[in-house]
Simulated scan of single mutants.
Amino acid sequence: MYELTVTPRFYETDAFGHVNNTVVTGWFETGRSPLFQLFAAGQQNPAELPLILARVEVDFVGQIYYGSDVLIRTGIERIGNSSFVVAQQAWQNGKLVARGKAVQVYFEHDKQASSPIPERFRAELERNLGELPE
């Protein structure tokens, strides 16, 4: 499991004083950064990252407010042949406020096709396989 703490910024709030719902997907993407670094294997060009995002979903289960940090937890829920499901949670003040999933696909840009996840990446994904604590 990977963890990251984010500090909500004032401009991320809406008229009700809540963190805007569009912000959470960005936080979750940032929480997937260790996976991007794994698959980048030293490459600095994001266009060479052999991953594409096939699906993203977010459930908002509580209100998120400006003024308190948010803990983002990221883990691997399932690993398939060429894709894997990333499970994520956002916690504020000890309460679960959002949960989500992202489906990432191992993708060969030169062939414009998915491909089986190489073993060197699969092993690291398996180390982070399991349910996130509730």
Results as ranks from 00 to 15, higher is better:
116 P>R: 05
37 Q>H: 14
26 G>I: 10
24 V>S: 05
131 E>M: 08
84 F>P: 02
69 D>M: 00
11 Y>I: 09
100 G>S: 13
61 V>A: 00
100 G>E: 06
115 S>R: 15
96 L>E: 15
73 R>F: 09
116 P>K: 07
82 S>P: 06
80 G>I: 06
57 E>P: 02
63 Q>N: 04
81 N>R: 12
6 V>R: 09
14 D>P: 03
101 K>S: 11
84 F>Y: 11
60 F>D: 03
86 V>Q: 14
11 Y>L: 08
22 T>Y: 00
68 S>K: 13
24 V>C: 06
94 G>T: 08
43 Q>T: 05
35 L>D: 04
93 N>A: 10
36 F>C: 02
84 F>D: 04
124 E>W: 07
96 L>N: 14
72 I>A: 07
37 Q>C: 09
53 L>H: 06
17 G>A: 11
62 G>Q: 06
83 S>Q: 13
79 I>V: 14
66 Y>F: 14
17 G>W: 14
116 P>Y: 11
7 T>Q: 07
75 G>S: 11
31 G>H: 11
73 R>H: 10
63 Q>C: 00
96 L>S: 10
14 D>C: 00
96 L>D: 14
24 V>G: 01
22 T>V: 14
47 A>H: 14
25 T>I: 10
81 N>W: 10
80 G>P: 08
101 K>T: 15
122 R>T: 08
15 A>Y: 05
106 Y>Q: 00
22 T>M: 04
91 W>V: 07
55 R>F: 11
131 E>T: 15
134 E>L: 13
94 G>H: 09
83 S>M: 08
32 R>Q: 11
9 R>P: 04
128 N>F: 03
109 H>F: 10
95 K>I: 08
83 S>C: 04
134 E>Y: 15
68 S>D: 15
79 I>Y: 01
105 V>N: 01
43 Q>K: 12
10 F>L: 14
83 S>Y: 04
92 Q>C: 06
28 F>E: 07
16 F>Y: 09
64 I>L: 15
64 I>T: 15
102 A>F: 08
64 I>D: 11
103 V>T: 15
102 A>C: 10
46 P>L: 10
81 N>A: 14
35 L>F: 04
112 Q>A: 10
90 A>F: 04
75 G>Y: 05
86 V>I: 13
44 Q>D: 12
125 L>D: 03
111 K>Q: 07
83 S>K: 04
65 Y>E: 03
98 A>R: 09
21 N>M: 01
101 K>L: 12
9 R>L: 14
124 E>K: 12
103 V>K: 13
30 T>L: 12
71 L>R: 14
114 S>K: 13
76 I>Y: 02
68 S>R: 11
38 L>F: 03
22 T>P: 00
2 Y>P: 04
53 L>V: 15
99 R>Q: 14
43 Q>R: 12
117 I>H: 05
70 V>D: 02
107 F>I: 07
30 T>I: 11
14 D>E: 06
129 L>G: 01
23 V>P: 01
12 E>C: 05
64 I>M: 15
105 V>H: 02
35 L>E: 04
87 A>S: 15
4 L>M: 10
102 A>T: 15
48 E>H: 13
1 M>H: 13
100 G>M: 05
85 V>M: 02
